[in-house]
Nucleic acid binder design. Structure first.
Lengths: 209, 209
DNA sequence: TAGAGTGATTACAGTTACTGTCATCACTGA
DNA sequence: TCAGTGATGACAGTAACTGTAATCACTCTA
């Protein structure tokens, strides 16, 4: 056996989720997490850059999975098809995890503004990585970012609806429906998405500030 | 004259933007900002909940403006039309501001991860408020959130393209084009946005983790 | 016009998230 | 056997915040 208990990183993650759940994020000190994991505060900060990051250890793995799927899409796939592959990969990975743990983590995160903040960054980073993968496939910069953003919208709200939904639909099915809804929504606006006309025609001079 | 110099909040905002620009966000202490504004650190934290918030004083104003426009859209407008009104309002307001100040602020924010984090939250909050306004108009919850998310995508990337673009197109025009691109993108995927089939047909059992 | 609020500010002490640095010591490979 | 190596601990320090009490120009009222 080693000099120390194995998997200190994992123990810290487990301790943190437990404590954040029990007493809340800002009622928990880094020192307490470390103590529960049988380590010191200094070691906590050697494993995680800050107190929030301990909840987002898996995000890199998920992101890499999604990006790999996008990059590996058929050469004939357009940007939205490629992005669909990425979402399918995410659904595979998350669908394999335990829904109750996902809900627990989601509960902790949405209960605290600082944690929500961090989650938004992770989603944004994932979107940027997906966009980069699309660009590498030859997609124009602008379209790549729009497609990646749409994918992140579907991913985020898909996970939420799936985790808390009544029915037992798979995450992939939920996301599929979201994509369809999004398409219908944009289509329905074929009439007047024109901006310039709205702002200048209707209130010609009434802008203050 | 009053007991103190007027507009301490404004002086703090100005001092902060200047110092963050000059020496960077984390090379600046709250105490230094307060000192430049002729105040104390404690007063800084009475005006702004944290060191980042001082850069986002105007975000509430913009959000309220956008939400009001969405809420005030014609009763016959669909969700995307209503959201278009909101974007037009945002374009009016930002178009009136000085582009160089917007660029300076954008530069400071994008140079620091903590500030990018905060900006994402503001955008997300704005999206939530827009979604709420849509729901009040009778739009289904799901569609409201999708429309609001799309609007935030257009708002964010629109501002960026407008602020750094070579041409002199108005912000409204840029956003208009983005909406059109987004629509075209979603339409192009009419072939296969189907998720479930992709993940199960192509790699039946190969999920690890 | 005295005198009781009011509200923005200062002063000061405290907590805690995080960082830098050096020491420790089981393990590894030559 | 013995010089690395790498994860950890020990300890001191900085700065972002927070709580609380005091100050004092201003305002309102009797």
């Amino acid at each position: 056996m080693g000099r120390w208990q194995p998997d200190s990183r994992g123990r810290l993650q487990e301790a943190a989720l437990a404590l954040y759940s029990e007493r809340g994020f800002d009622q928990t000190t880094a020192s307490q997490i470390a103590e529960r994991a049988g380590l010191t505060e200094r070691t906590f900060f050697r494993h995680f850059v800050d107190k929030r990051e301990v909840l987002f250890g898996g995000s890199t793995v998920l992101q890499d999975h999604v990006v790999a799927a996008v990059a590996g899409a058929d050469a004939t796939d357009g940007p939205m098809q490629a992005v669909g592959r990425g979402l399918a990969a995410a659904a595979d990975m998350l669908g394999a995890g335990r829904k109750d743990l996902i809900r627990q983590r989601h509960g902790v995160i949405s209960a605290n503004p600082e944690l929500r903040e961090r989650e938004l960054v992770k989603l944004s980073d994932c979107g940027a990585a997906v966009a980069a993968a699309l660009i590498k496939r030859g997609v124009r910069d602008l379209l790549a970012h729009l497609a990646a953003d749409a994918a992140m919208t579907v991913l985020r709200s898909g996970i939420e609806r799936w985790a808390y939904g009544d029915d037992d639909r798979s995450l992939a099915m939920v996301m599929d429906e979201l994509l369809a809804d999004m398409k219908a929504l944009l289509l329905s606006a074929s009439a007047i998405p024109v901006l310039a006309s709205q702002s200048t025609d209707i209130e010609p001079e009434s802008q203050h500030v």
